[in-house]
Structure formats: C-alpha cells, structure tokens
Amino acid sequence: MSAIVETRELTKFYGATRGVENLNLVIQPGQVFGFLGPNGAGKSTTFRLLMDFIRPTSGTARVFGLDVRDNSLEIRTRTGFMPGDFALYPRMTGHQIIEFFSAMRRVDAASEARVLAERLDLDLGVTVRNYSTGNRQKLGLVQAFMHKPELLMLDEPTGGLDPIIQQEFYGMVAEAVRDGATVFLSSHVLPEVERIADQVAIIRDGALVRVDEVGAFKREATRVLSFTFAKPVDENEFTNLDGVSDVRTEGNRLVITSSGPIDPIVKAAARHEVIDLDANEGELEDVFLAFYEQEQ
C-alpha cells in the first residue's frame, strides 16, 4: 500500500524567511505520526502546504497519492483538519458551525458531532464568542473528526485541553486508527507524542532532524542504573561500554549513566554479586533535548 502522506524535498520560503526546507516525509496508512518541534520550527507550514493553503517554493507533496494542488478538493474531502492557530465564526453557535461545515462537506454529520461533543464535554448550544479557549479547541476537534475522515491532520490538538479531556482525545485517536484512519499530529509536548504516536519526526529550523519509531527513541533515552554489589567493584569495567557516559562508585554502590544498550551493562554487572538494582525509565525528553542542544 502506498504512503498516505509523502513529501519530496518540500521547501517553503516566505520571502527570505524560511518555513521548511527539503522536507522528506513519509506517513504510512494506519500510523499515528507525531510531528515534534518547538514553535516556529515549520510544523504549521507543513500542514498548510499539505492543505494547499500555501504553495511550495520547490519540491512536491502528495496526500493519498494525489498532488496537493491539483487534487486539493478530493484531499480535503477525505481529510479532517484542525489548524494550529484558528478561529471560528464568533456569532455562530456550536450547532450552527457543525451544520454549516456539514453542509459544505455535503455530509450528515450532526449525530456523530453530538456524540463527539458529549465525549469532549462540549455544549454545542453556546455561541463561539462565549467559548473558552479549551472549548473552541474542542469544537475544532469535533469538526475534524465528525465526517470520519481517512486522514486526520491535527496541528497542536491538545493545547488548552484539561488532562481528562486529553485522555478522551487519545481515545478518539485510537478509535479512528482502529477504524482505518491515519493520524498526523503535531505537538511540542513530549509525553503526548510518546503516549499515542508510533512514528516520530523531529523538526528543527524547518528541517527534519530525525524520523524514527517511538521505541527507537526510547531505547536511546538516557537511563541511570544503580547497582548495589556485595563488595566494591572496579568502575573501569564499565566506563568503556557502549553508550556509557558516566560511572560513579560510592562504597558498594555503582551508578551508571548510559544512552546505549542495556545488555552489556547487565552482563558486566552479573560477573559480580548483585544485591540490588534500581533503574529509572528513559525519558524521550532527554533524547529530544539532546537534538536541540546540538544546535547550541
């Protein structure tokens, strides 16, 4: 099966200002693809290029195998999109927005929208002007999901949502994927991407720094292992192991900081009598920050 989203050397400059540069992105069917990067890195620019709001300076982009410009209407019919920084017509109620968007999409999504609104605890009877930021965000999600699109593109979907609603949103994403949808979402919140994405792309200054499975990032995450041995051990047995960045001894205790494979450390430790072992889980955040710190 061909890719749902595929960009080749996709580049966008706004005058002299860089949006994205030589972006090569492939999103496979059924994936939850997390787009991670700080504000201004080019996440929104990528979404806007895929939605044909803006046109590339060079390079190409295809969604469902279709050219984003020539077949934009078909792409938009089959996609649910929530922009990053959006507004809805302030004088319409939630119901009227849903009704208007359904009419424009020529679908009857009223009942599905009601179900989604209920899940997200959103009152559709309120005028958009009187919604809080979080409620406006929820309405943005409802309109993106309501027509059961094949592709969901969500630019920073959970900003402004409280934790319980975020959980509900993760559930909606999981159900959409179970029903065959592909999800492309951006975030600058790591635990979120860690929680729901299969694949992660890190973008910095308009360029992809790395694309990999969440598991691969996790395996590289820095761990701190502390062993307690029956008697003191020589720390030189550990310093040259792959990925080990720091080894400290303190009496019978040995504390190792490593971003490498765990197996050689365990095997080296097993040559001695291990009384206790404590290992914290690697945080994706450390890997993420490592990519950012390369810059400085």
Binding site: R48, M51, D52, F53, L73, E74, R76, T77, T79, F81, P83, D85, F86, A87, L88, Y89, F101, M104, R105, G140, Q143
Partner: peptide
C-alpha cells in the same frame, strides 16, 4: 483566522 477552517472544507 477563520479562513483556515473555511479552506479546510472541500
């Protein structure tokens, strides 16, 4: 900024 929503419709 209502244009993004409008343009996301087919």
């Amino acid at each position: 900024k209502t244009m993004d929503m409008l343009m996301s419709l087919p």
